[in-house]
Design a protein around this nucleic acid. Structure first.
Lengths: 167, 167
DNA sequence: CAGAGATTTCAATAAAAAATGAACAAGCGC
DNA sequence: GCGCTTGTTCATTTTTTATTGAAATCTCTG
C-alpha cells in the first residue's frame, strides 16, 4: 500500500497528489471500488484545475479503458462532474467534494438490495421452519426472530445515517 | 449467487440452512469476508446443536484449511464460541447471535486504522500545501479542509453507531 | 458529411484473493 | 513417551476481480 503509487508516476505527481490518491484508494477499496477508481478520484480531488481523460491516463499511467470506466462509475455516483471547457475539444472532469456521495451510493446500490433480498429470504425461512419438528422448531424460530430484529434495526438506522451524511 | 450452494450440498443441508448460508455469504462479503466464512457462520447460526469442524467440512464441502481459518477468524471476532462437550474429543462450535460483532470488528479492524492513517496523511498534506504557490495553494487548503471536515464527521458518528449496535 | 479525435466496449490478460491439501504441531489416552 | 486423533499453517492451485488494448462507436469541426 505504501508503494501504491510507484516512482515512475512521481515524475508527474506531486507529493500532495500521491497522499490524496493513496488515501482515496484506501477508503474506496473499503466499499469495494477498484484501485483505479480511487486513483482517479484522488487526483481529481486535489487538482486545482479540471482534468481531461488524457491527463488522467498520463499522470496515473492507467489504460484508456480503466480511465473511461472509472470516470463512468464516478459520474454515475455523482462523485465526478463534467466541465465543458469552451474551446476545448475534450471533456474535462472535476471532483464533487461531497464525499457523502460514496456512502450514499454504497447504501443504495449494495446495502439496500441485500436487505430487500434478506427480507424475502426470512419469509421463506419462516415457511420452512413451520415444517420442522419440535425441539428444533423452537430454536429455528428464535434465530429467525433474531434476524428480523437486526433487519429492523438496520432499516431504522439507515435513514438516520443518510440524513447525517447529507446535512 | 443463486447457485452459491450447489446441489451436491443439498444432500445434507436443509433449505433453511441454505437460505441462512446464502444470506450470510451476501452480508459478510459486504465487509470483505470470504464466502467460506459466510458459509460457516450461516450454518452455525441456524444449527440447533453445536457443530464440530468435521461437521462443517462435511456439510459445506469445504477444505480443512478453509474451515480452520474461517473458525479462527470468527472466533477472533467473537462471532463464534467454542463449546466444550464433555466426553467428546473434538471441539464444538456455536454461533454467537450478537450480529453487531461483525460491524464492531469491521470498525475496529478496518475503519479505525484507516482513519488514523488518514489523519497522519492530512498533516503531511498541510505541510506540502504550505510550499505551494498562491493560486493553487488556496485551493489545496480548501480541499484539505474538506477532508478534515469529513474525518471529524466520521469520528463523531462512530461512537454513536457503536452504541446503537451494542444496545 | 468526411474524417480526425475522443470515448466506450469488451475479449484477452494480469493481478489479487480465496480455497485446497499435505506437511507439521498440539494434545489426549493409554 | 508413543501412537492416534484433531487442529493449524502455508505453498500451490483455483477462482474471482481488475486492467489492458484494440476494435467499434460516437462526436465535433472544417
Amino acid at each position: 500500500m505504501n508503494q501504491a503509487v510507484s516512482e515512475e508516476h512521481a515524475r508527474r505527481l506531486s507529493r500532495l497528489d500521491i497522499e490524496a490518491i493513496e488515501m482515496f484508494i484506501s477508503f474506496l477499496k473499503l466499499i469495494g471500488l477498484p484501485k483505479s477508481v480511487g486513483e482517479i478520484y484522488g487526483l481529481l480531488f486535489v487538482s486545482s484545475q479540471p482534468l481531461s481523460m488524457d491527463d488522467l491516463i498520463e499522470k496515473l499511467q492507467i489504460s484508456m479503458g480503466a480511465a473511461s470506466q472509472g470516470l463512468k462509475l464516478l459520474r454515475s455516483v455523482g462523485a465526478v462532474k463534467v466541465v465543458y471547457t469552451p474551446g476545448e475539444r475534450r471533456d474535462h472532469y472535476v471532483a464533487d467534494l461531497e464525499l457523502s456521495k460514496f456512502a450514499a451510493s454504497f447504501i443504495k446500490e449494495e446495502l439496500n438490495p441485500r436487505m430487500q433480498r434478506a427480507l424475502e429470504r426470512i419469509e421463506r425461512m419462516e415457511k420452512e421452519a413451520l415444517l420442522m419438528e419440535e425441539p428444533e422448531k423452537a430454536v429455528a424460530f428464535q434465530r429467525i426472530e433474531r434476524l428480523k430484529h437486526w433487519m429492523e434495526r438496520g432499516q431504522k438506522m439507515m435513514p438516520w445515517i443518510l440524513r447525517f451524511l447529507v446535512s
